[in-house]
Design a protein around this nucleic acid. Sequence first.
DNA 1: TACAATAGTTAGAGTACTCTAACAAATAAA
DNA 2: TTTATTTGTTAGAGTACTCTAACTATTGTA
Lengths: 220, 220
Amino acid sequence: MLSITEENYIKALLKIGSQSEEKAAAGINELSAHLGVKPATATDMFKKLKEKKLVDYKKYGKISLTEEGRNKALSIVRKHRLWETFLFQKLGFTWDEVHEVAEQLEHIKSPKLVSKLEEYLDFPEFDPHGDPIPKANGEMVPLDKMVLSDLKPGDTCIVVAVKDTSILFLKYLEKLGVNIGTQIKVIEKVPFDSSLLLTIEDQEPRNVSIKFSESLFVRK
Amino acid sequence: MLSITEENYIKALLKIGSQSEEKAAAGINELSAHLGVKPATATDMFKKLKEKKLVDYKKYGKISLTEEGRNKALSIVRKHRLWETFLFQKLGFTWDEVHEVAEQLEHIKSPKLVSKLEEYLDFPEFDPHGDPIPKANGEMVPLDKMVLSDLKPGDTCIVVAVKDTSILFLKYLEKLGVNIGTQIKVIEKVPFDSSLLLTIEDQEPRNVSIKFSESLFVRK
DNA sequence: TACAATAGTTAGAGTACTCTAACAAATAAA
DNA sequence: TTTATTTGTTAGAGTACTCTAACTATTGTA
């Protein structure tokens, strides 16, 4: 049985690992920053997780999940996203509120609760941020997505997920009327600062920064 | 902000305190047994809770909740019973399964979650075991209840709650077809062992032990 | 009222997780 | 290729919660 702390460590590794390409490995500094602890603390903890055969790790090397560690981490992500979906769909939480509460709910230990919840939500494939929800066996529909900033003038796309889940960004999206499924057309790319001029659904064209367009996942 | 451990300590005190009459105070041995820790451990913890002004306590004296401690404890019981209701009504958990999971869910910190959940459940007054759910302000409908063993032959009653929430007892009730709201009529009291002969709804009369009849709350 | 039984406390120690400070390895730059 | 910078490790210590063992106070009984 993993402690909440241990669960958070392997979850962080799954998240950072899946962002980078290839073997999905991460360094101590990046991990500790993401977890909000000092590198020394993270070193100790990953040593312990290595003993438990959840991570692969050698002194001064990159850290990656073992098969078992990856499954455990996926089951936490599964719970997190199912709870987010519940909070959003059933309890009327807003987009930006669900994450924080789901961070707590994801650590509840009850296999029955998870499967009942999934059934109650009618087996959702995506959470409110557009991220795919892993199934009980760890499978996950791959999301074919690109960042908005990769589009060219004239391209049209559908918003499928957010890359940045910070409250500031989510609130800004809300204000702009952007949700999962929203249609966006790129009118023009400003060479000076790489900002984009675009139309959101039927609204008037507006300009968004490169930071914005790199934080939104879309599908052509 | 209280830790999960601290929450469990004041919850135990509320529970034991409200079982006994008068000033609702409890001893260290009883509390530590209920919490599954050694008396030495409980002594330390209640000292700490005294510093936080959540309990009244002097060396070698009984322990009781302060006004603030009582409010905190009630809010945990509120969460516990709302979650039990959710698990039972919405997710199809059985009577005996809800408690264990609610023990975990009651520690989730989110005032919004609690009020949204209450609203989603349509402001329930009782949990699946028949116990009243405290309102946000700490108020609770008083349950006019007595134990089945206090009835006399010829009396008829309605089951309103269970006193013992152990899985063994709940499963036995299920087998007997006893639920909240079930009607029971006492036919005869056996002087030898104080067991009762009774009819449950329209079933054939059957005999139940004194242990059984002292574990069930009813209303005449 | 004295003493045995019960109830509660203190001291010392262990585990899990965290930190700071000092150091060592790996990597990038001159 | 030597050095500076970045990255990661070790040692020592602190907090929260738990234990055992030894002790003290309170209560009930003879």
